[in-house]
Amino acid sequence: MSDRRVVRRARPLLGTLVEIGATEIAGASLQATADAVDAAFARIAAQQERLSRFVAASDIGRFNAAPACACIDVGADARTVLAAAAELRDASEDAFDITLGSGPRAWRLDERGLHKLADGVRLDLGGIAKGHAVDCAVASLESGGVDAGWVNAGGDLRAFGELALPIELRDEASGGVRRFATLEDGAFATSRREGPDGASRHASVAAERCLWADALTKVVVATGNASHPLLERFGARGWLHSSPIGSA
């Protein structure tokens, strides 16, 4: 328990609610902390403009509209996320697939840009970009002088600095929450969807960075394996939640 105050705000972004908490910057006005929170929200909004498939002019919108053999010039955010997505795809035998089945191997990122290798392949970074957005917002808060806080993008969250963040897990079947863990200096993400076998799975992953936590929940849900070897490779830990928390 500390006497430092916290600026806590939430806005609708990334198709969900994004919450940012920042402990007040020592030796500065509370307004300086609020300004750092505003800047972190702006960083997320800027990333959304570049990565959302719903924005025609975004890197992903232009890829999806392009013909086969096109090479799309992409920004730094897209490069980070796409490089991670390619690594996860290759290491998971395509279980992690940002094309949602439209052609997991029909895109390639290299120094020239993002190559579209077939007509009809479409990218959707919904399974990984929120995690990256959280990481970017944390970096923005830190560069703004905030030394402890958290960012939560609809359940994909990260805590940093000297702060123990209590994490509540939502009961997806009947609402309400249950205390799951306390997190310090790390990321935690949860996902729930139908696996390839039709069964509904509900999984969480803790990792250093939120990009990996977010993406690896998809691997755990897709494979039904909370001890998938990929988790260890990224220093992550996974859980499959049982009924009634994840019951349909």
Binding site: R4, R5, P12, L17, N152, L157, L165, V177, R193
Partner: peptide, 26 residues
Amino acid sequence: APLRVGDDIANISGATLSCTHVTEGV
């Protein structure tokens, strides 16, 4: 009320909450 670290800073994790209702409301 002004929050203090350690008061009630709990965060929810769960299958991503859609904010469609807020978007429609706006």
